[in-house]
Write a protein that binds this DNA or RNA. Structure first.
Lengths: 195, 195
DNA sequence: CGCCAACCGGACCGCCCGGTCCGTTTATCT
DNA sequence: AGATAAACGGACCGGGCGGTCCGGTTGGCG
């Protein structure tokens, strides 16, 4: 069945995933395998024995993040204020210490989506987006035309937008997340005419 | 002074810029010089005689777009409704037929900013962002804490977010632009506490 | 302790990139 | 038409990438 890994293999695998997480966080999907291996203190060959492809390695890293989002989302489904819960969720998503590009999760490349577990994890993640959004909408905290997909996409933006100022204004992304959430509120809504 | 180009050189230069515009629009800044040359029907060597560097070629393309934004912005500064003018400007920016990634203009790479004309054009462009935003703010159409820089950054988002759905929902980006603009309105504003 | 399979890691491959070079073509001027 | 400089374009270079291979190392079991 699941063949037991040798002790050193386990150690290396852990170091590899840690290094990959850090490196993908820093450089995005274009991070190089050689650099990840160097950072993990192992050879490039070892990387490819643990994962057949760079995309499979990326997939493993993304899975963690998606599960994390999923868990926090489920927790917040139990929060009393549905609107506040949605905002809190978006902030949690943007926060990810290792500021892994959220759009790697939300709009994942075809290659990593080809890994079946990733597709499943992404589907579960979007289900949580929907659940949180439906609840907020039912509570009248967001306007009627907002969907879970909208939330998933929109919450990716602040990270990108604020990235150039991450040094001098590390909290700028929070302001943009709040701004965008305000756009979701029913108060000043001016939705486009359908068409 | 400015040495006259030979007729064929002029033709090739035009074809080159057209091809570069299309290719950068389609593939972003990672478009390859070889492909641009092929598309223009010229050799790669010719590209580098007209522009010393790929970045200089990209710079030439970006300049056009920035001037276009600048012109439309100045036109809209004369529009009666300041708030409507700002929204219209954002829509114009998102529209750019060749949907050239706006963030190439707004958060240009250090390399292309090293081309002095680009830096100047970008500064003029940001000045227009500020002018339009100041006027909208003075008219009470957007909240007090919104700056021209905010507008410049935020208006880049819809293009990215809607890109994966560009095929089946080509107008989705408009909805997001409107949503984001609603977040700028004073109506339902919930700005973050300073800090 | 000694053996062997599991594991390691760096040399190596093919590919594509931005950029250079130079022998060939061609527009232009007389 | 012939001369000449301008312009062309593809072969070529160095570098970095993802991925492979295989001789050397090492953990774990009998």
């Amino acid at each position: 069945m699941t063949r037991n890994l040798r002790a050193d293999a386990v150690r290396n695998r852990e170091a590899l995933i840690a290094a990959a997480t850090a490196e993908f966080a820093a450089r995005g999907a274009e991070a190089s395998v050689a650099e990840i291996a160097r950072r993990a203190g192992i050879g490039k060959g070892t990387v490819f024995r643990h994962f057949p492809t760079k995309d499979h390695l990326l997939a493993a890293v993304l899975m963690d993040r998606m599960e994390s989002l999923h868990a926090e989302g489920e927790r917040l489904l139990g929060a009393p204020d549905a609107g506040e819960a949605l905002l809190e969720f978006m902030m949690f998503a943007g926060e990810q210490k290792q500021r892994l590009d959220l759009s790697l999760l939300v709009t994942a490349s075809p290659e990593v989506l080809a890994v079946p577990e990733v597709a499943g994890a992404q589907a579960r993640m979007f289900a949580i987006f929907d659940a949180l959004t439906d609840r907020a909408r039912a509570a009248g905290a967001v306007r009627d035309d907002v969907t879970g997909t909208d939330v998933g996409l929109l919450m990716c933006a602040p990270g990108h937008l604020a990235a150039p100022f991450a040094e001098e204004r590390p909290e700028l992304w929070r302001r943009y997340m709040a701004l965008i959430f305000d756009g979701l509120r029913p108060a000043g809504a001016h939705p486009l005419p359908p068409g």
